[in-house]
Simulated assay, not measured.
Amino acid sequence: MSLKQQLIDDMKAAMKAGEKERLAVIRLINAAIKQKEVDERVEMTDPLVMAVLEKMVKQRKDSIAQYEAAGREDLAAQERYEMQVIEAYLPAKLGEAEILAEIDKAIAATGASSAADMGKLMGALKTALAGRADMGLVSKLVKQKLG
């Protein structure tokens, strides 16, 4: 079953169970997916849906930081809940050791040896680690390896 279909099924289940908060978050996800389909005129595949979900998680993280800085814990808590529901649809994140192993494999595959090769290396890693790792952390680890 595709991720998009899973979201639709979960939306129906949330409606039947009366889970209003969860239903609202799933509707937000479906709206973002539909918006991307309309804007780009593409059929959403699982990798494209995961990219939308990752973007939504990143937006929630930024919002949480801003709400906490402004002392609005009530809004930060709502964003945390939304982030938790969205992350449930993403694959489990890799640990730092697993990311380093992927970086070593990519270095061997691309022949990267200096910071000048970082773009080529990050391009290879982005496809290999899509949805499974925080690319900010990956970038930091790549800089350490090549620096």
Rank of each mutant, 00 (worst) to 15 (best):
D9A: 13
D9Q: 14
D10P: 04
M11G: 08
K12R: 07
A13L: 01
A14C: 00
M15I: 02
M15V: 02
K16A: 10
K16D: 09
K16S: 07
G18N: 10
G18D: 09
G18P: 07
E19R: 14
E19Y: 14
E19W: 13
K20E: 15
E21G: 07
L23Y: 15
L23M: 09
L23S: 04
A24N: 09
V25I: 12
I29V: 15
I29S: 11
N30W: 11
N30P: 06
A32C: 05
I33F: 05
K34D: 13
K34N: 13
E37W: 07
V38T: 15
D39F: 13
E40V: 04
E40Y: 15
R41T: 11
V42E: 10
V42H: 08
E43Q: 12
E43N: 09
E43H: 08
M44Y: 03
T45C: 01
D46C: 02
D46E: 06
D46W: 02
P47E: 01
L48R: 14
V49N: 10
A51V: 03
A51M: 10
V52K: 03
V52D: 02
L53R: 06
L53M: 09
L53T: 02
E54S: 13
K55L: 04
K55C: 03
K55F: 04
M56T: 01
V57Q: 05
V57I: 05
K58S: 11
K58F: 07
K58P: 00
Q59A: 12
D62R: 05
D62G: 15
S63A: 13
I64G: 04
I64S: 03
I64H: 06
I64A: 03
A65S: 10
Y67W: 11
E68H: 11
E68Q: 15
A69E: 14
A70H: 05
G71A: 01
R72C: 02
E73A: 13
D74Q: 10
L75R: 15
L75P: 06
L75V: 02
L75C: 08
L75H: 12
